[in-house]
Simulated scan of single mutants.
Amino acid sequence: MGDGELGSAGHTAIDSSNVGFKLLKKCGWKEGTGLGASEQGMLEPIPTFVKKNKRGIGADKTKKKVEVLKDLDAKMQNNHDMQSKKKNKQVSKRIRKMQEEEERMKEKEFERAFFREFWPDNV
């Protein structure tokens, strides 16, 4: 196989002016042989293509609209559940704080009444 010829998979071999070709040659690679200790590796480079979407590499091409809508609905429901739990937690926290404050006020009032009873001149 020479420069620019088609390989067995229909891909073109790398050109001798290619930087990768030059680096491989410098490391002891011989043209037409595979990479690896036993020269069993690939003969042609991996084919490339321009990726125009914002999905990750290896992601499914497209999802069906129904699946997308189901996913969206599930996420919205989950978000709503989380918000309602958060609100309930906030409300119960406020109630607990109010009860604690009320207990403290009762204790202070008890102390004042106790001191008034025994030391009316000081209070």
Rank of each mutant, 00 (worst) to 15 (best):
S38K: 14
N78D: 11
I95F: 08
G2L: 07
G4W: 03
G56R: 09
M42T: 10
M42E: 06
E44N: 09
T48W: 07
L24F: 06
E107S: 05
F118C: 00
K97P: 00
F21T: 00
E107N: 09
L72K: 10
E31P: 02
D71A: 11
S8C: 09
A13G: 04
E103H: 13
D71K: 08
N79S: 14
H80I: 13
F115D: 05
G32L: 08
V91H: 07
V50Q: 09
F110V: 04
R104F: 01
I14Y: 03
T62R: 10
L35P: 02
V50C: 06
M105G: 01
T48K: 15
R112H: 03
M98D: 14
H80R: 15
T12V: 12
M1N: 00
G56E: 06
K89I: 05
K26M: 15
V66Y: 03
G56V: 06
T48V: 15
R94S: 14
Q77W: 05
F110P: 00
E31H: 14
G2Q: 02
A37W: 05
G36A: 02
R55T: 00
E101S: 08
L35A: 04
R112K: 13
L72N: 03
G2I: 01
S16L: 06
D121L: 08
N79D: 04
I46P: 02
V68M: 12
K63P: 01
Q40G: 06
K89M: 12
L23T: 03
K97C: 13
R104L: 11
F114D: 04
E117I: 01
K70H: 05
K97D: 08
M76G: 02
R112T: 13
F21E: 01
K61Q: 10
E102A: 15
L69N: 09
K22H: 00
H80Y: 14
E5H: 04
S16A: 13
E31K: 07
K54I: 02
D81Y: 04
E109T: 06
A74W: 03
G10W: 03
K106W: 03
M1V: 11
K63Q: 05
L23E: 06
E102V: 07
V66I: 11
E101Q: 13
D60E: 11
R112Q: 12
V19H: 05
Q90P: 00
E117K: 12
T62G: 01
K108L: 15
I46S: 07
G10V: 00
E5L: 05
K22V: 07
N122P: 00
V68R: 08
Q83H: 06
L6Q: 12
R94G: 03
K22I: 15
F110W: 09
K85N: 12
K106T: 07
K63N: 10
N79L: 15
M76C: 09
I57V: 14
P45M: 07
H11M: 14
H80L: 15
S84I: 12
K87L: 15
L23V: 03
G4A: 06
D81W: 05
A9T: 11
V66D: 07
G58D: 02
K85P: 01
R94M: 14
F21N: 01
K30T: 13
K26S: 12
A13Q: 01
K87I: 14
M1A: 03
G41I: 04
K25Q: 14
K25I: 04
S92T: 08
G36P: 00
A59N: 02
K70M: 10
G56Q: 09
I46H: 03
E44T: 13
